[in-house]
Amino acid sequence: MVQQNDFQKQNALAAAAGRRALTGAAFALALIALFLAGVQHPDPAWGKLWMIRPLLIVPMAGALSGFINYMLLHYHRRLGIHKAIAVVLSALIYLVGLWLGSVLGLAGTLWD
């Protein structure tokens, strides 16, 4: 059996956290893109590039929420939380993060 040193374990943990954050960002981007695709006639006062703000902010909120999800599920024993509670709590944190990112991204346009 090959032993791994601490450096290899840290790289694997960072890669897993990055994948979880990327998954959270991709899901958030898909949801906000689907939501913005339904806008047929945007207000001319918003400007031509009004979609850029929500398309950047919402995936960032999704990535942060996905990272928090990883941290909570990976370190639930150290925090003294049962795994089922950690799963429910991380899902709630993701939904709240996605909602807050949507509010921040759409403020001044679709969220008045």
Results as ranks from 00 to 15, higher is better:
M1N: 10
M1D: 12
V2N: 12
Q3W: 10
Q4V: 11
N5W: 09
N5G: 15
D6H: 11
F7Q: 13
F7G: 01
K9C: 05
K9F: 07
Q10R: 14
Q10V: 09
Q10E: 12
N11T: 10
N11Q: 14
L13Q: 13
A14C: 05
A15I: 10
A15T: 11
A16V: 00
A16R: 15
G18A: 11
R19D: 03
R19M: 09
R20T: 09
R20E: 13
A21D: 00
A21Q: 00
L22A: 15
T23D: 03
A28L: 05
L29S: 08
A30I: 13
A30Q: 01
L31W: 02
I32G: 00
I32T: 12
A33D: 04
A33G: 11
F35L: 14
F35E: 02
L36I: 09
L36W: 05
L36A: 05
A37L: 08
G38Y: 04
P42W: 07
P44Y: 08
P44S: 06
A45R: 11
W46F: 15
G47Y: 07
K48F: 11
K48T: 14
K48I: 09
L49Q: 09
M51Y: 13
I52N: 04
R53S: 07
P54G: 08
P54F: 06
L55F: 10
L55G: 04
L56N: 03
V58F: 03
M60Y: 01
A61H: 00
A61W: 00
A63Q: 01
A63Y: 00
S65F: 01
S65N: 01
G66P: 02
G66C: 06
G66R: 03
I68L: 11
N69I: 00
N69K: 04
Y70I: 01
Y70A: 01
M71C: 06
L72G: 03
L73Y: 02
H76A: 06
R77W: 07
R77Q: 15
G80C: 13
I81S: 06
I81N: 03
I81D: 02
I81A: 05
H82R: 13
K83S: 08
K83D: 08
K83I: 15
A84C: 05
A84M: 12
A84T: 14
A84V: 12
A84D: 13
A86P: 07
A86Y: 08
V87H: 09
V87I: 12
V88L: 12
V88Q: 06
S90E: 05
I93R: 02
L95N: 02
L95G: 09
V96Y: 05
G97A: 05
L98A: 08
L98C: 05
G101M: 02
G101D: 02
S102Q: 05
V103Y: 10
L104C: 07
L104G: 03
G105K: 02
G105F: 04
L106I: 09
A107T: 09
T109Q: 13
T109P: 01
L110P: 00
L110G: 13
L110A: 08
W111F: 15
W111E: 11
